[in-house]
Design a protein around this nucleic acid. Structure first.
Lengths: 212, 212
DNA sequence: GTATGTGAAACCGTTCACAGCA
DNA sequence: TGCTGTGAACGGTTTCACATAC
């Protein structure tokens, strides 16, 4: 329908706007202007209006945006209005923290299966989910209609786990391993890379501001 | 010295290059071309050369880059050649996973203190680090010369924890809480935002490719 | 011959400034 | 009057294409 290309970074801002709108809604605020929202998010009013304009006209001139309505629309755009079914691979420190991660469950994201390669972890129950072996991936992903695979294994295993997930038919992968994963174009990948962010921080701490 | 502005995104790529160079070094490879490195990282050869050119001339025309040497130079640029001292705030699921996170310790990042607000967590020992109460932050950060504060508390506490860390004198903050943190300009912040990445993934899964 | 380093061009995203509307 | 929606200007990043050096 819309032949306009939307910058991915605009999408990430929508997620931030939604977060702040949810807080405003909780506080009982009814209306918000792009200026005030920009203040809260640390952005620029024109940018907020542009980001929203990619998807429609949600505001009222001279007034602003109705908090509830805008939040609803952004959630619809992001696809955050549906329950997403996640499968975790790698139930180590990070993996088990993700299973218990409140910001996920608070937001309609639900882990419905967990897998691990270590025999002693199979059968463990975390947050009501029983850990299965890696070779159950194919069956369980299909059985439980899992759309998103979450990778929390060591970097050297990440690619082979991704291959299994793709073969099993997931549509998306959220990868926490510090590794570049290759996969078919029809599967979407997002990387969450702690080490990279820490490197960037250290660069900024190392380099005088004038050189950045 | 260099009056050229360097795109932050180029820095994040340097981190990725370093990761692959380390793998190449392990495999005993001596030389790499921008083309082959681009293949591994999923990028563009010209971009790699541009990124490196911001900082100097590290290659040999007609040959490529010496793996060991380039890795050394990139680590120097990123400030990854020194040991960084980290302090963790919030020893919940995520926090304790971070204390045990191998990719950090493998790379010269060391947690030297941990803090939490919950009384029953004080005194616990994780990875040899004893959990201290929040009001020890000021003293411990200075005592242990901690440069970077890592925030792994619930979103509603993130700002107040950041304030404490700033007052205690950290230079940088790595924030895992899904919240925007305000802090003085002289303190650098990087956010690691799982939920945002998951939202972006779901957007892509929701929206037909033609509209993106 | 081959691969780097680099201006120039193309591309993309942000900000400005104002028209349009309640 | 006040705030949105948006074309146009701006600034920054990526890609191209080739001179340069081994």
């Amino acid at each position: 329908m819309e032949p306009v290309k939307i910058p991915p970074i605009a999408i990430s801002r929508l997620s931030v706007y939604a977060r702040h709108l949810a807080l405003l809604e909780q506080k009982g605020e009814e209306v918000i202007s792009s200026g005030r929202l920009a203040n809260m998010c640390g952005g620029n009013p024109a940018q907020i209006r542009k980001d929203l304009a990619y998807f429609g006209e949600f505001g009222v001139r001279g007034v602003g945006y109705y908090v509830k309505e805008l939040l609803f629309e952004i959630r619809k755009i992001l696809g955050a209005d549906k329950k997403w079914r996640l499968g975790l691979v790698g139930v180590g420190n990070l993996g088990s923290a993700l299973l218990r991660h409140a910001p996920f469950s608070d937001r309609g994201y639900a882990f419905v299966a967990a897998f691990d390669g270590k025999p002693d972890r199979i059968g463990m129950k975390i947050e009501g989910i029983q850990v299965e072996p890696l070779n159950s991936i194919n069956h369980a992903i299909q059985e439980k209609r899992i759309e998103i695979g979450v990778i929390a294994v060591k970097p050297d295993l990440a690619q082979s786990v991704a291959n299994r997930l793709v073969r099993a038919g997931v549509s998306g992968i959220l990868n926490f391993a510090p590794a570049q994963i290759q996969c078919p174009l029809h599967v979407c990948i997002e990387n969450v890379d702690f080490s990279l962010k820490l490197d960037m921080l250290c660069y900024r701490l190392t380099t005088p501001e004038s050189n950045r």
